[in-house]
Design a protein around this nucleic acid. Sequence first.
DNA 1: ACTTGTGAATAACTTCACAGCA
DNA 2: TGCTGTGAAGTTATTCACAAGT
Lengths: 240, 240
Amino acid sequence: MIEIGEVTVPAATVARLPYYLRALRDLTREGVDTTSSSELAERSGVGSAQLRKDLSYLGSFGTRGVGYDVESLSSYIAAALGLGSEHRLAIVGVGNLGHALANYSGYAARGFCLVALLDADPSVVGREAAGLVVEHVDELERVLGERDVSMVILATPGSAAQAVAERVVACGVREILSFSPVALQLPDDVVVRSVDVAGELQILAFHAAARNAQQGDGVARPDGPSTPRAPAEVGKNSVT
Amino acid sequence: MIEIGEVTVPAATVARLPYYLRALRDLTREGVDTTSSSELAERSGVGSAQLRKDLSYLGSFGTRGVGYDVESLSSYIAAALGLGSEHRLAIVGVGNLGHALANYSGYAARGFCLVALLDADPSVVGREAAGLVVEHVDELERVLGERDVSMVILATPGSAAQAVAERVVACGVREILSFSPVALQLPDDVVVRSVDVAGELQILAFHAAARNAQQGDGVARPDGPSTPRAPAEVGKNSVT
DNA sequence: ACTTGTGAATAACTTCACAGCA
DNA sequence: TGCTGTGAAGTTATTCACAAGT
C-alpha cells in the first residue's frame, strides 16, 4: 500500500499501471481514441473488474456507457507514474547485462535519462556505450552527485552488490533496480525492485515439475513437437 | 495456488523458493551446516514466520530447538523446484538483451542447459554466442524439436513476441520467460513469466513521486549527495 | 442499452502467538 | 530452553454484482 498525495494505492495496483500505460500507448499508435475496460484489460492481461478497480484508486476517468478516452487516460497514468519529471539514471556494473541495459533504447521515450555508467573492471572503464564513457566505480560519489542521479540500476556481481548499494544510498538515491541475486539490506525508505533471471527460470521449473507430477507421473516432457493442441482459448497466465 | 503431487503451494511461496535456495547455497559456500529460520529469513529478505510458513507447505524439514540442516534443506528445495531433471532452454531473439542472457554463465549450475539461439535478423544468424551458432527463427520448429527444448526465453521485439510465442507453444513448450513488453495471449496451461525493465523503472518512479508528494511537496530530489542519513536499520524493501 | 465505479463478498497472503518437541 | 510448525487472526488483493450515470 502506497500513499500518494491524499490517496492510498495498493502496491499490486501500482505494479499493473505500467501494463495499462503500455496498452494505452499501443492503442494511440493504432489510432484508437476511445476504449473500454474490457478491451484495455484484455490487452493488459488482467480482468476488466480488476482494471476498473485499479483505476478507481487513482480517480474516475471514464464515461459510463461509453468508456475511456485513450489519450487522457494515458497521460493521467503517465503522470501518476511520475513520468512528468525526468528521472536521471545510472547503471553500475557494465558487464553482459549492464551493457545490454545501457543499450536499451526506450529510456528517453519513457521519461528516463541514462546519464552515467560505472564499473570496477579496468578493462571496461573508458569504453564507450550508449554514448557514455564508462567511469570507474571509485568515482561513484562524485559522478552521482555531479549528474544529479536519482535512480540506479545495479548489475554488478552479487558479491559487490551490497557494498555498492550502500554507497549509492549514501548519495541520496532512494530507488534501486537490482539484477544481482542477493537480498540487499538497506534502510526502510529505500525502494528496491529486484529482477532475478535465474529465479524466474526456477519458478518456471517448479511449474513444469507440478505439471509432470500431475499428469501421468511421467519422467520428461510427455509429448513431442507435433501433438494435437488444447483449444487455444485466451488465458490469464501467471505473471510476476 | 499451485498443486504439486498431493499438496497445494501458494504462488507467492513458490516465487520465494529461489531466494531461499540461493541463501542456502551461500551458507554452504561459507561452510555453515546448520541454520535457523531467522538467519535464513534475513539472508532471503523475508520475515522468519513467512519462511517457516512457506516451508510448511512443502513439508517439515527442521528440528525443533535446533534449526535446519543446510545441505538437506537445500537439496529438498532444489528438488521441489524441479532442478533434478535438466531443463533444455532456447533463447529466441539474440539482440542486446538476448545476447547478454545467452552469455549468462549460471545456467548449468542451476540445472538449466542452453541448447539453442534463434533470431530473425540475417546479420545475427550464423554468429556464435555462448558456444552456440545463432539459427534462423524460420527453423524454430525443427530446432526446438531436435534439441528437445522444454523452456524458452523470449527476447524479441514486442511486435514479434505474440507470433513467436504461438509457434513455441505449438512445439509443446509450456513455460516461457518473456522480456517483451506485451501481454501474451496464450492457452491457459502455458505459464508465462514476464520481466519488463521499463515497467520496473516506472514502478520506482511511482514510489519516487509518492515520496516527493509526501515530503514537502517539493519539485525534485530534496537533498544533495552529502546529507545526514536515516539510521541504517535493516528494512524489508518491496521486491517484485 | 451499455459501461463505469464501487460496496460487499470472497480469496489469497502474511503475521501473530503459542503448542509441541528436541 | 529454544526453535520449529501451524492454527487463528489480521491484512491485502481479487472478483462479484449492481447501482449510477450517459
